[in-house]
Amino acid sequence: MFAKEAYKGTLEEQYTTLSKQLDALLSGEEDLIANLANASALLAQFLDDVNWVGFYLLKKEGLVLGPFQGLPACVRIPVGKGVCGTAVERNETMLVEDVHQFPGHIACDAASRSEIVIPIRQNNSLVAILDIDSPLLARFTEEEQRYLEEFVTVLEKHIVL
């Protein structure tokens, strides 16, 4: 069901399939960590040219590392610092073509060149972020941003805090 070959067709069709698979995969499960772990694994399998896919959970002291696929990562990120902390501070998606040009970039993985960070909300409050890094410059497009935001919307239906 989750084989890479299942993703054929236009980019829109591929992401529609991905979101449907996420919904099916998480259906009936309420554990936050299990759902985030499966979501990160599904994205890591689906996306080409990425070196890190995961989640940071918003706690009182800032962002704390959650389930992910990739090399070991920064455990804590203050709100307002780096791409992830800036996404929380602004409460909006951050699409960064070259992280080395981003003021205050936190280099958890020196191989990362571009990044997208998408807020995850529950009851209109930001509770976590999805963070995806790539070793390629300008890896993520605005079109992909929209589809990844739709993926997060599906994920939000399965988030129970």
Rank of each mutant, 00 (worst) to 15 (best):
L58M: 11
E29Y: 13
L57A: 00
N124V: 01
F102E: 03
F102R: 06
I129C: 11
L95E: 07
N38D: 14
D98I: 02
E12Y: 12
T86A: 11
V99F: 00
V75S: 07
V127F: 05
L11D: 14
L58N: 09
R90M: 09
N123Q: 15
V64S: 03
V83R: 08
L43Y: 05
E30L: 12
I120Y: 02
N123Y: 12
H105D: 12
A128F: 03
I116H: 03
P72T: 07
V50G: 01
L71W: 10
T86K: 04
E115N: 08
G80M: 10
A73L: 11
N35K: 05
I118L: 15
Y15Q: 01
G28T: 01
I120L: 14
Q14F: 04
N51L: 04
D98V: 06
T141A: 02
A37K: 14
Q21R: 13
L43D: 08
E61F: 00
L32K: 11
G82V: 02
G85V: 00
G28S: 09
T93D: 06
A87G: 10
C84I: 04
A34Y: 15
K20I: 11
L18S: 04
S134T: 10
A73Y: 06
A44I: 00
L57S: 11
E5N: 12
L22G: 03
G80P: 01
L137N: 07
F46A: 09
S40C: 05
F140L: 11
Q14D: 01
Y15L: 08
L126E: 10
I120T: 10
A111H: 13
V127K: 12
S134A: 10
A37F: 07
W52V: 08
H100W: 10
E13D: 13
Q101T: 15
Q101D: 15
G82C: 09
Y7Q: 01
G82Y: 04
D98G: 02
Q101C: 08
D23T: 05
D23A: 10
L25F: 01
F46P: 07
S27V: 08
L130N: 06
L136D: 14
S134K: 11
A107Q: 12
V99W: 03
G62W: 05
G62F: 03
G28M: 00
D133Y: 02
N38T: 03
S27A: 13
V127S: 00
T10V: 11
K60Y: 12
P135G: 01
A24F: 12
L47R: 12
L32A: 04
Q45Y: 10
V127D: 12
G66E: 07
L95P: 00
E61C: 09
G85E: 00
P103Q: 08
R121A: 12
I106Y: 11
L65G: 03
K59H: 13
E61G: 05
Q14M: 15
Q69P: 02
S19C: 15
Y7H: 06
G28D: 07
A39Q: 07
V99E: 13
G82R: 00
L18H: 09
A44Y: 13
T86E: 06
V75L: 13
W52K: 10
L43M: 03
T93Q: 02
G82Q: 01
I120W: 04
